[in-house]
């Protein structure tokens, strides 16, 4: 151990011993970030009527309760549908926007970029209130269309930023080369540019999916009627009754979210090794 403490941690000759404080704070930070999320996992396997931690007896009855509830199943299907549609709408729009911002030399394009990422900076509740009144007028309140549009608004900034940063390291001359070789611009984009930024596009798509799937504030305002999302139902359930079903749903959401994030990270890494390889 002494040897490890004294050994250099980097090329700057800082030792692991001198870095110890950094390791400790890092670990504490990570625990603080993750622990509240994972605390629901044991709670979901409790046999108790109420949310309790740690559980006294174990069972999977709350998972059964979830899967057997038509109401929860409908909400789940609404959320998955909204997330999938958001991904399908936001990804192409965001990718095209990022490409346009990257390829065009027009002045004032910075403004377009700022406008595109505004939804990320404005408090979500403001967007929700705005969407609510607009949707009443447009008569798309409580519809899937309205929900997907609002979530797309939230997801586009992520797609633009992730795809945009991938384009920064991409050499646009390749597209010019393709065009000089006889490819119209759209074909040059599809055959040359897109294959090389595909990992960023996949990551963007997954993030768009998660943006919608995890979203609760906008859903509170504009989803409902026959189309409440899973998150909205969970929020209402928490208010009305403290039922461990919530914990089991949360656990399943954590599993799905973590799995998608893992795919996103792996896809991103695959993209990077391919770039440098």
């Amino acid at each position: 151990m002494i040897g490890w403490f004294g050994s250099p941690a980097s090329e700057t000759q800082i030792t692991h011993g001198q870095r110890l404080w950094l390791y400790i704070t890092s670990v504490i930070t990570m625990i603080l970030l993750v622990l509240p999320t994972f605390i629901v996992i044991p709670m979901s396997f409790s046999d108790s009527q109420y949310l309790e931690f740690p559980p006294q007896t174990w069972s999977t009855r709350w998972y059964q309760s979830y899967f057997n509830s038509p109401e929860w199943m409908r909400a789940t299907s609404t959320s998955l549908k909204a997330a999938t549609l958001t991904m399908l709408v936001a990804t192409p729009i965001g990718v095209l926007a990022a490409y346009g911002l990257h390829a065009s030399k027009l002045p004032y394009l910075r403004i377009a970029f700022v406008l595109l990422i505004t939804p990320m900076m404005v408090p979500v509740v403001l967007i929700a209130i705005g969407a609510f009144y607009a949707y009443v007028k447009l008569q798309i309140l409580y519809t899937m269309t309205g929900l997907v549009l609002a979530h797309t608004l939230l997801a586009i900034p992520l797609v633009v930023i992730v795809t945009g940063s991938a384009l920064k390291t991409y050499d646009m001359n390749q597209e010019n080369a393709a065009r000089s070789l006889g490819a119209p611009r759209w074909k040059a984009f599809l055959t040359i540019t897109l294959p090389q930024i595909k990992f960023a596009v996949i990551v963007s798509g997954l993030l768009a999916f998660l943006t919608s799937f995890d979203e609760v504030v906008i859903a509170m305002f504009i989803s409902g009627g026959d189309n409440p999302t899973l998150t909205r139902n969970m929020f209402n359930a928490l208010r009305d009754q403290i039922d461990p079903t919530i914990a089991s749903i949360s656990t399943l959401m954590i599993v799905l979210t973590t799995a998608l994030m893992a795919i996103a990270v792996l896809a991103g890494r695959a993209g990077r090794t391919k770039d440098s390889g």
Binding site: N176, A178, S180, G182, A188
Partner: peptide, 20 residues
């Protein structure tokens, strides 16, 4: 005429080969 209809060969400074 757009570039793809000019039917000319072009060699770029940094080769611009398609790495994929």
């Amino acid at each position: 005429k757009p570039p793809h209809l000019r039917d000319l060969g072009m060699v770029f400074q940094n080769y611009a080969l398609f790495p994929h």
